[in-house]
Simulated assay, not measured.
Amino acid sequence: MGVQIIKTGKKVPYKKITNFDLEKILNTTDEWIKDRTGVISRFISTNETTTSLSIEACQDLLKENDVNLSEIGLIICATMTPDTIIPTVSANIKKALKIDHCITFDINVACSGFLYALSVAESMMKNLSIKKGIVVGVDLNSQLVDWKDRGTAIVFGDGAGSVLLSYDINDTSGIVSTFLDNIDDTENSLILKNISYKTPFNNLNNEFEFFKLEMFGPKVMKFAINAINTSISSVINLSKVSLNEIKYIVPHQANQRIIDAAAKNLKISKEKFYINIDNYANTSAGSIPIALDELNKNNLLKKGDYIILVGFGGGLSFGAILLKW
């Protein structure tokens, strides 16, 4: 093992939007939203950006000032909503933290991004002997959804979560096993097109076109339930750890119904799944690290505990990481 999470942090926007607020702009009700998603409220950006939330999540991570910043040699940001493409969000984080020399890059694997970034960070830290690394999961979904479509608008929120990784070849804590995969989205159940700009060489009628997230909920739900089942089973089978030894399962917070169905299929108590979708909604790449920070800050994790991080998202991507705290 050797690469372990030693600190966690998070940052969400200032503005909190309840289901009752959405009743004023959508044909929906608080009861309807809670019944279908488990969401009660979410945080929505007003002045915050992907970069600003990421920086503050990292500042929360490092607020005790007991980390030698010169040891941080890697920053990976998982996001599908970068406010700047060049420089990357991770480069903006490095600049804000005043780290002189550091590898930085962003990745986009939609809601699975944090797991993929964590796995890439583990590999790079081992291969390049990097002592400390930061992984951030962040998304501003409020910029992507159609606020006239209750099928998507009610589900999402904004937020950033971060972890500080430490590499010690002799440490018995850290990542035990990893499973990542992708299947084709043959029915286009989850799509977000990029902005298209008019050029002298295309036939666009407008100067540019904006696109919004399109999601076919029933297809996504079926995929997600299978993805959780496959991912959890796979990381268990790849390890010498039994499911009974797992203290918590931290799932991507997409929909309460998805998590309930997966727990039933796996014959796992729902209490083993750490859920905070009621307060944050689906923050995409931010959901797992935000939940992990809550677990950590509430002292629910003890050294030696086994936990599973499991996620799924567009692409269709999915996976899980089993780690020893």
Rank of each mutant, 00 (worst) to 15 (best):
M1P: 15
Q4H: 09
I6R: 00
I6C: 07
K7G: 13
K16A: 04
K16H: 07
N19V: 11
L22D: 02
E23I: 08
K24I: 07
K24L: 09
L26E: 06
L26V: 06
T29I: 04
T29Q: 04
T29Y: 01
W32Q: 11
I33H: 05
R36I: 09
N47Q: 10
E48L: 14
T50H: 10
S52W: 12
S52D: 12
S52N: 11
S52H: 06
A57E: 04
L61E: 05
N65H: 10
G73W: 02
A78M: 13
T79A: 14
T84E: 09
I86L: 15
N92K: 15
D100H: 10
H101N: 11
I103P: 00
T104D: 13
D106A: 12
I107D: 04
I107E: 08
L115G: 05
S119T: 13
V120W: 01
E122C: 14
M124G: 03
M125I: 08
K126C: 05
S129M: 11
G133Y: 00
V136P: 02
V138Y: 02
L140D: 01
L140G: 00
Q143E: 15
Q143P: 02
V145R: 00
D146R: 10
W147H: 14
R150Y: 06
D158F: 00
V163W: 01
L165Y: 02
S173Y: 10
V176Y: 00
V176P: 00
S177T: 13
I183T: 12
I191Q: 11
N194F: 07
P200F: 09
N202R: 13
L204F: 15
N205V: 13
N206K: 14
E207V: 12
E209A: 15
F216T: 13
F216L: 14
A227F: 01
S231P: 14
I236Y: 04
I236H: 03
K240L: 15
V241A: 12
S242M: 03
L243W: 00
P251C: 07
H252K: 02
A254T: 07
I258R: 02
D260K: 12
A262I: 09
A263K: 03
N265T: 12
K270T: 10
I277N: 04
N279V: 05
Y280E: 07
N282D: 08
A285P: 10
I288K: 01
P289C: 07
D293P: 11
G304Q: 03
L309Y: 00
L309M: 15
F312Y: 13
G313M: 06
L316D: 04
W325M: 15
